[in-house]
């Protein structure tokens, strides 16, 4: 169970981007979060993935409140989340080849011996051919890079997937392929999903339940919400 209760978060304490947002994702459930651009849904997704410490509110992970974020969070808790971001260009280290990009979480958690088996298997799952794996991010297209980023998110077999506008910059066929990969993974492992986006049709067809931002953060409506560029 992933529960966000009355989360207030932002990049400046005096002007929070998210006010009093509450959201629950049950294990195995797929929840779509809809909202207009700049409303703070990406910030909420970062909070849910333990990547951004909220100013107020609690995050319950399987009933226990989370007290530490980012590096301070226990490694097992951090790696329980697989995160895919909107812009693959910015979320891939420009110096790493795609195979290293996918294998990086395994190296970081000291599970090098799994690399030879796991990386080709995942590359095949997300639809990356072996010749693409030796290239660097600037030598592949956005769609191919996003496939690699999804593979990186899945490599540690997370229990929760956070997809922050994963398909916003991609064409329809790549979108369908990536959603299918996520759904296959969820069917195989029973992982929960929080998909953030502004495409109602896609989220309605993808997720078990779609919630609108206004119902997640009712207090945010009347307050002047400052738009953060790029998020």
């Amino acid at each position: 169970m992933l529960e966000l209760r009355a989360i207030t978060a932002g990049y400046d304490r005096r002007a929070p981007v998210v006010r009093d947002a509450s959201l629950t994702v049950a294990p195995g459930e797929a929840v779509g979060l809809l909202g207009p651009s700049g409303c703070g849904k990406s910030t909420l997704a970062r909070v849910a993935a333990l990547l951004h410490r909220p100013d107020a509110g609690t995050l319950l992970l399987d009933g226990t409140p989370v007290r530490h974020w980012r590096h301070r969070a226990p490694r097992a808790q951090r790696t329980a989340f697989g995160v895919v971001f909107q812009q693959p260009r910015l979320s891939a280290d420009p110096r790493l080849r795609l195979t290293d990009l996918i294998a990086e979480p395994l190296r970081a958690t000291g599970r090098r011996e799994e690399i030879p088996a796991r990386v080709p298997e995942l590359a095949d799952t997300v639809g990356l051919t072996p010749d693409l794996l030796t290239r660097r991010p600037h030598e592949v297209s956005d769609g191919q890079l996003q496939r690699a980023c999804l593979a990186r998110a899945l490599v540690l077999r997370p229990r929760w997937l956070i997809c922050d506008e994963m398909t916003a910059m991609l064409d329809a066929s790549t979108t369908a392929a990536l959603v299918a990969v996520v759904e296959d993974y969820r069917a195989a492992t029973g992982a929960g999903l929080l998909a953030v986006g502004h495409d109602r049709i896609l989220l309605d067809r993808w997720c078990d339940r779609t919630v609108h931002w206004d119902t997640v953060a009712p207090a945010g409506k009347e307050g002047a919400v400052p738009a953060t560029p790029g998020r």
């Binding site: 990547l51 995160v83 971001f85 970081a108 958690t109």
Partner: peptide, 8 residues
């Protein structure tokens, strides 16, 4: 962020 989430 992705590296942090990957346990680095």
């Amino acid at each position: 962020d992705a590296a942090v989430s990957g346990g680095a």
